[in-house]
Design a protein around this nucleic acid. Structure first.
Lengths: 223, 223
DNA sequence: AGGCTAGTATGACCTGGGGTCAGTCACTAG
DNA sequence: CTAGTGACTGACCCCAGGTCATACTAGCCT
């Protein structure tokens, strides 16, 4: 169990913690979890290393806060523009998946921190992260899938939570592969110079996802 | 880049390395990556810590070997019994997914090591692992999917590699969730006392996977 | 046998960085 | 002004990954 910082009485304290978390995000993003040194973060802020431990208990505790902040900085499913949402669930999915690379470049630091949290720390931390993700649902996947069901686009014949998990798993895997060479099973970075084929693969992926989740249509004739 | 051990001239050396990797697997499985101490591994074998570094260069190098060994100890898709395979691609998928928990208990150590390699080390190591997984395909997913296509069960209208990745991603995610509390988004461990609902969820998952990948049938009437 | 070389083993040693803690400071309340 | 609380500090501890000079062993050539 990783200690959480207790709520500060003072508003000033909160500001300071935010500054630390901010610097930590940058360091973790740039150096990785192991590579980031608590001392460097302290030095960057001109404070004593001890202070950081005072506030966050441990390096893992600090990372956890950085991770949470990072996730909250990223868009949730329902943050798509209205005109996209009005086209429905799968259009929204496509919207986000198509914009993956773009988004990552815009928000490099939080994305990197999230990535590190997902794959590059250790299982104790991962457990804590997972609990939080489940309890907070910061990407709003649950709500999003329910919305898709209400629109009649998403199937309702299997457990909701399975669908939610599938969306999470697949979108994560795809985005990670698209964006980070470390995690790409050769789908995209091998084709770095063929953006057309990359696009095609994302489309194929979207096709598969839709096949998996779409509500069965009453015998619409295939073309 | 993580140094690989160079091939030993001596057969005896190989035996010794195997012993080290063996002990390392146990320690990593039981203590986690950070928790496992090189010194403990050496002590367990009654050798000097320096020797381990001699052979494997670094803790990460040792882990990499342990990981590879662990993966090779696990069954590949095509290792299903003949009577299952004769029922086809999706039957084989179901066979493995249904046996997940059982398998993990049988092969706890390699499974745990693989898990740690997948989520609990760092991105440098992860990259190395990924390269290896892609180049070796130790689970034979590529071959397996091609086999499914040849049988006419798996769709052929999207890139093969996308399908392969999807199978890998989803089966990994499901198995991890089923088996390790740390990674379960509440799908299974929250229902620990309701094995029936757990089974049902696995079935639902299989349904989704099949919907995603199945070759389109020539307008079979839905019930 | 007797060197010669290359690979292997050793354990004392080094070092960096996470984590601790006793003491100090700064703010607020009474 | 004083007491009390929380924040801050920096010197310190110590563990565990990694290094290295030295010693050993096994094959091999002459």
């Amino acid at each position: 169990m990783i200690a959480q910082p207790k709520a500060p009485r003072n508003a000033k304290t909160q500001v300071k913690r935010d500054r630390i978390v901010d610097a930590a995000m940058r360091q973790f993003a740039e150096q990785g979890y192991q590579g980031a040194k608590v001392e460097d973060i302290a030095a960057e802020l001109g404070i004593a290393k001890g202070s950081i431990f005072q506030h966050f208990g441990s390096k893992a505790g600090l990372f956890l806060q950085a991770y949470k902040r990072a996730v909250l900085l990223l868009p949730s499913w329902q943050d798509a523009p209205d005109d996209v949402r009005s086209e429905g669930f799968f259009a929204t999915v496509r919207f986000w998946l198509d914009r993956t690379e773009h988004l990552i470049k815009e928000d490099w630091i939080p994305n990197r921190v999230v990535l590190i949290g997902n794959y590059g720390t250790d299982l104790v931390l991962k457990r804590e992260i997972n609990r939080w993700l489940v309890s907070e649902d910061p990407y709003g996947t649950l709500e999003f899938v329910e919305w898709g069901q209400q629109r009649g686009e998403v199937r309702t014949d299997v457990d909701l939570e399975i669908i939610v998990s599938m969306v999470d798993w697949l979108s994560n895997s795809l985005q990670d592969a698209l964006v980070t060479e470390e995690l790409d099973p050769g789908l995209f970075h091998r084709l770095a110079n063929q953006p057309e084929r990359q696009r095609m693969r994302v489309e194929h992926f979207e096709t598969l996802l839709e096949s998996a989740l779409a509500a069965p249509v009453a015998d619409s004739p295939a073309p």
